[in-house]
């Protein structure tokens, strides 16, 4: 891996000898996995909706499956971005929609209802992961007590002195100009 990074260096630039540890929090790793899963599932729903509706006994609902595919892809992109928390919450909401759509297919007259039950089980499991990821990637609260900085003016002689000095310079400049 360093080899690829190193051959892209300009001649003479420092090259990697040994790489340090990658510091990705577990929650971010989970978000990334769910993001790619979402994009994969979305692509399948978008490109092969008939295969999905046949498997679930939902023939005629191809447009709905395609729409869900688009939603999955967008949630996936969001889950891979720096706004991964919003992406994961959108996945949780999407899981709700998926479950609702699957429930509507749990009819007695559906010969593939065992597939639907299996799909519902999977959606439930994924929803748990999505929910956990969304919880863990939420904006972390401040560690410990928040520190404010009301004493950091940056002016060693004080704010009033800084303002007065500025006014003096401006009035000198004005006098010089007139």
């Amino acid at each position: 891996m360093y080899y690829v990074a190193n051959i892209m260096r300009s001649e003479g630039d420092p090259k990697i000898v040994r790489s340090g540890p990658r510091q990705v929090p577990p929650a971010d790793r989970l978000a990334r996995s769910l993001g790619w899963f979402s994009i994969g599932l979305g692509a399948l729903e978008l490109l092969a909706p008939r295969r999905i509706t046949r498997t679930l006994g939902m023939q005629g609902d191809e447009t709905l499956v395609r729409a869900f595919g688009l939603r999955e892809i967008f949630s996936g992109i969001m889950s891979l971005s720096v706004d991964r928390n919003a992406g994961l919450w959108s996945r949780v909401a999407g899981d709700g929609l998926d479950a609702a759509a699957l429930m509507s297919a749990m009819r007695r007259d559906n010969p593939k209802k065992h597939n639907v039950a299996l799909a519902l089980l999977m959606v439930g499991g994924i929803a748990l992961l999505d929910y956990r990821g969304a919880q863990e990637t939420a904006q972390r609260p401040q560690n410990g007590r928040r520190r404010l900085y009301p004493d950091r003016s940056g002016f060693p002689k004080g704010l009033a002195a800084a303002k007065a000095a500025a006014q003096r310079v401006l009035s000198h400049a004005k006098a010089g100009a007139s």
């Binding site: 001649e11 003479g12 420092p14 000898v17 340090g20 990705v24």
Partner: peptide, 24 residues
């Protein structure tokens, strides 16, 4: 030497890299 190296989105690591040298 040690340096903070960009490896990709949200992936910066403290790597061991070769020392720089005078080129010009």
């Amino acid at each position: 030497m040690k340096a903070l190296v960009w490896h990709g989105k949200e992936d910066i690591r403290c790597d061991e890299v070769t020392d720089p040298r005078i080129e010009d």
